[in-house]
Each structure stands twice: as structure tokens, then as C-alpha cells.
Nucleic acid binder design. Structure first.
Lengths: 215, 215
DNA sequence: TAGATTGTTAATCGATTAACAATC
DNA sequence: TAGATTGTTAATCGATTAACAATC
């Protein structure tokens, strides 16, 4: 299969949630591309193209089997493979992400949590106990960790991330309000929640010109 | 000024954080487009184009004044105008968002919090006290609310959002793992954190082909 | 003046959509 | 057979980049 580009990677989880909902809550086992499309506000050709790209086959006159769609999305996105992650910065956001519904079933397994504040050390977060950041390297030496989820203040995230790169962590999910720029061999996703606020704030003032594709 | 498209709305907050950091932590008052570009992993022409689009003027041989850039981004995104928001679902994620660094200075003001769980009602979240969702309509009648931040379970978000639309809320920031589809006159941003996990999970398995633009 | 940088027009590239063929 | 839907090729559109002019 061809490498998937950003736009399609952005849509696949949206399809996934929608199909899951139709299947579980409405008992609808087959779906049409146009149904999916109108719900998500995209063109139905795009849906068919996306599904073809990940190897889902539909049936003319019937549509797509929901189970097929879910299975292929899970396979393509790697949800069947378990990824070990640590939370660095065990505040409310870190805890919320650790507990976000569905993440466990997407292969995310939190195997550690670290914080610098003495009053947070020892706290139970999900299945793990918060340790001191001083113990970071020692912890990483005993455990395979694929993803570091960074929920620390912006001014410490850069130094911290480089420390984790040195310790061999291959992927970073950064929620600090700062752009994290790391060597090309590591994977970084800068989540930056303020992007969402910026878009809403902008549209509110402009009378909501929504990003309806090509209209 | 022309309407800004999604891609540029996505980059502006990134520029903003970076410039703020250079200004405050490194005392660097002017910046070059190429400096910004390499840091954020985009082309320097794109940076100049973006800054021109929001009306920032640079000086040949000097670069851009950081303060100008910040001021224009704030003005364009509407950060100078206060937006009143309520949090619906006062769990960890809701609380974390209410307290996210910088949001206050971006014009976001949390004026209410609601939850259905009796043991959360009465809790202090930031400056507000959590009320029962039963009091939602009554609360909205006494207070101007522009944004509803939804941090509720996926299976209740749709009904809840329609209730809020009926009560006149014009914008929604949805963090529930479900796509929210509302009438065209309201602004919706579906945050869907699983998109981030999906991208990281995918890249980890494919040896990290990063989204370096056009390479 | 030479050099560094911004500003802008034209070219390219990639993503989306339109049109239509294929299938059940 | 007619109709509904998927699948795919070609056209379009928009975003990015390359090339270069302008400026200090």
C-alpha cells in the first residue's frame, strides 16, 4: 500500500468513530459512501477513494460492510499493535489523556508517569504510579517505551524532549504550547490546542465561514 | 483582508508561540522568515506569504519585528475580544482545558461549568463552580455564552449539542470521540484527539516518513 | 556597491471533485 | 431491465514552492 498522506490520516479516525457508532448504537451493518460523506461534511467520492486506498472493498448497490471498514482502519493505523507510552507531566491534562475513552483499544498502553512536583509523586494515574523525573532514564532502561506523551509547561518541553531522544524514545506526542522540533529520525506530533481556539475565535468574529470543502 | 483558509489558521498559532518564545526567553526582537521556517519545518516563502496575508510588514535586511507579528496574529484571530465559554463535562479533560496555559490571554473566559454527576456538582473549577446540566438553559438565559466546550462521553454529545444550539450557543469545541454535525449557522470544531494517536501509531510502524512538505 | 532579506508573480504539485464506467 | 451504488480516470482547484524583483 502507498504511504498515506496527512489529510487521509486525519479522516480515518473520523470514519472509524462514525462507523463504530452506526454499528453499535444503530445496528447498521452496511454503510454507503454518501452517508458517511454527508455526515462528515466531505465529498462522497473522497470517501470511496479513501476506503479504496486502505483496501476496503464495497459492494455496488449495497455499500461497505462496517466491520470491514473498522478492521482495515485498525490494521492500517496500527491499532492492533500495542504501543507503550509514558506520560511526562502528570497534571490534569496528562491524566485526562491517559484515561481518554478508546485509547486503550487503539493500542495505547500507559506504562509510566513522571512529574517533577513532589506532591504528585506516588499518585496513582490509571494503572501506574507517578515517579520523579529523576528516575526517567532508569525507568526507560528497564522498559520499552515507544511514545512519550508530553504534558509539561512550554518552557521545559524542549530540554526534556532532547533528554528523552537521548534515552531512545522514538515518538513524541507534545501537548505543551510550544512547537517541538526534533531530529528527523524521531516522530513528533505537536498537538497545540490553541489552534482549535484560534479557529473558533476567528470564525466567531467573521460570521462563521465554515471550511466546507470547495464551495 | 481575505478570508483565511484552514492551513494558515493552523500555522498562525504556531508562529505565535514561537515568536513569543524568542521574544521572552531569548530577547530576540526581530526574526527572519527563514528562521521561523526552519524551526517549524515549512518553507520560508510560505512564512512570508502568511505574514503578508495578515498584514505584517517586514524590513529587507532586518526581518520582522516580533511585536508586530504577535500583535497582528492576536488581532486577526480575535484574541483581543473576550469570548465567554462554558465547560460541559467537568472531568479531568474539561478542567485541564479550562486551565490550559495561555487560553486566558487568548480571550477565552470560562463563565460556567456543568456536569451530570452529583459528586461533581459544587466543585470549584478555575473561577467557576460546577452546576447540574439541568440548570443549563437557565444559566444560558442569564449569561452570554459564545463557546461551549464539550468534554462529555461520546454517546451523549449529539443530543447535548442540539440542546445547546436551541439555547442559542453559536460555537462548539468538541473533545468527545465522536464527530459532531450541527446546522451550518453554528461553528463547530471537532478536536478528536485520536487523530494524533493514529498518526503517531501509523508512523511508528512505517519507520517515520514525516510529513516534510513536498520532499 | 554588495549582500541580505522581504515581497510577489509564475510554475508546480498534490488533493479534491466531476464525469462516467463497472457492477450487482 | 432499471436503478443504485462502487470504482476509476480525467479535470479542476487550491496550496505550496521556485524564481526573481524590490528594498534597505
Amino acid at each position: 500500500m502507498q504511504d498515506l498522506t496527512r489529510p487521509i490520516l486525519d479522516r480515518l479516525p473520523r470514519y472509524y468513530h462514525y462507523v463504530q457508532d452506526r454499528l453499535e448504537r444503530h445496528g447498521q451493518s452496511t454503510l454507503s459512501s454518501s452517508g458517511l460523506a454527508t455526515m462528515l461534511g466531505v465529498d462522497d467520492t473522497l470517501v470511496r477513494r479513501d476506503l479504496a486506498a486502505i483496501g476496503v472493498k464495497g459492494q455496488p448497490k449495497i455499500g461497505y460492510h462496517g466491520e470491514d471498514v473498522l478492521a482495515r482502519i485498525r490494521a492500517v493505523l496500527g491499532f492492533e499493535v500495542e504501543n507503550h507510552a509514558i506520560i511526562v507531566g502528570a497534571g490534569r491534562l496528562g491524566q485526562a489523556i491517559a484515561a481518554y475513552p478508546g485509547f486503550q483499544s487503539y493500542g495505547l498502553r500507559i506504562v509510566g508517569a513522571y512529574d517533577i512536583a513532589p506532591d504528585r509523586i506516588g499518585l496513582q494515574v490509571g494503572e501506574v504510579v507517578v515517579e520523579s523525573v529523576d528516575a526517567l532514564e532508569a525507568g526507560l532502561a528497564t522498559q520499552h517505551v515507544e511514545i512519550a506523551i508530553l504534558t509539561v509547561p512550554a518552557h521545559v518541553v524542549d530540554a526534556l524532549a532532547h533528554r528523552l531522544v537521548d534515552a531512545g524514545v522514538p515518538a513524541f506526542w507534545n501537548f505543551a504550547p510550544a512547537h517541538l522540533d526534533l531530529p528527523p529520525h524521531v516522530t513528533v506530533r505537536n498537538e497545540l490546542l490553541s489552534v482549535g481556539l484560534a479557529e473558533i475565535s476567528y470564525r466567531l468574529r467573521r460570521g462563521n465561514t465554515p471550511p466546507q470543502p470547495h464551495e
